[in-house]
Design a protein around this nucleic acid. Sequence first.
DNA 1: TGGTACATGTAACATGTTACATGATTAG
DNA 2: CTAATCATGTAACATGTTACATGTACCA
Lengths: 184, 184
Amino acid sequence: MPTRPLNATAASLLGFLHEGPMAGYDLVATAQRRIGDFWSLTQSQVYRELSAMAEVGLVKAGERGRRDRRPYALTAAGRAAFAEWLDREPGMETIRFPLLLTLVFGRHIPMRLLATYLEHHRRIHAERLGAYETQRRALHPQSAETEPFVVATLDFGIAYEQAVIGWFDRLGLAGADVGAGDTP
Amino acid sequence: MPTRPLNATAASLLGFLHEGPMAGYDLVATAQRRIGDFWSLTQSQVYRELSAMAEVGLVKAGERGRRDRRPYALTAAGRAAFAEWLDREPGMETIRFPLLLTLVFGRHIPMRLLATYLEHHRRIHAERLGAYETQRRALHPQSAETEPFVVATLDFGIAYEQAVIGWFDRLGLAGADVGAGDTP
DNA sequence: TGGTACATGTAACATGTTACATGATTAG
DNA sequence: CTAATCATGTAACATGTTACATGTACCA
């Protein structure tokens, strides 16, 4: 029975396991740090995928270590499944942006309130951009995070945040004092 | 029992119903056209939300019309629930971008294959940008779609696609012929 | 009269989210 | 000893996805 194709979350876990065995806890942290900005996942999901993958032999749980850590290692089947996943055309991105929904229905809210939402979100995006730029400057050669591929995703984050901030700043909502400007 | 807060999908449906009663089919079409680019939803979901909302009285199903259409109308409770939803701070956006995942794990795939993926996605984004720009130019005054709020979301789409395309074009993956350039 | 587009709906399952429960280890 | 943090896991539910089943009306 051909186990149905991996989902992207599971595949990512297998991807990280190529760097060596890891426990769920580490995988959560690693994934959130390395892909969390464009692929959200939760602790619950990670444990679920790990036990599911262990059941079908894509990973193998090792002996429990200190603090009950249970390291998972990639198996040959896991490696194969990962390779297969990479071979399939990646799907289109999905964006779910609640603020834009609110904005579409803007005529149903007081401008004041809408302006607060916009300012708040703008600030968050500005902070994110700042963080990405710091990361970008701090890149050390010779770390897994410095691979050109990884740098490329960081650059995506930067481009995205810049676009969002630019958009906020160009938003000219007829007469509202919704605008640019960092926090005073 | 205080019915738990609306989810954004249900809220959007209520939002559209402010323009008058509509059947599920129309709501699907309307939603996909007006918010589909930053809030994906499926037909199944729409019917599910509609019957759920009908059960708790946020909408009211009318008489079946031609071709079995069943129009749903906003109720006072629905209006209130929608207003309440608008009053809550919109959450942060989530982006799930499989191509970036593939890219993070780029060292595990042949450059050739990766390049195809990138080119393919770049083309799709270029097409989307083109479509948005056409829409933007075609805006007629006096339509629901011409509200400044709605235009703002279209502008977001444009800014986003421009950023993505810019990123594709700047991607300099060491020695790979992954690059800019429209289809020849 | 037969195909196509319209329209609703369900079933089954995959994925995502939130909250909680439990034990192990360490730092103070 | 005790609070904090590390680490795993489950339960329950919400949401998203895919596939299918069914009937209606239009149009060639």
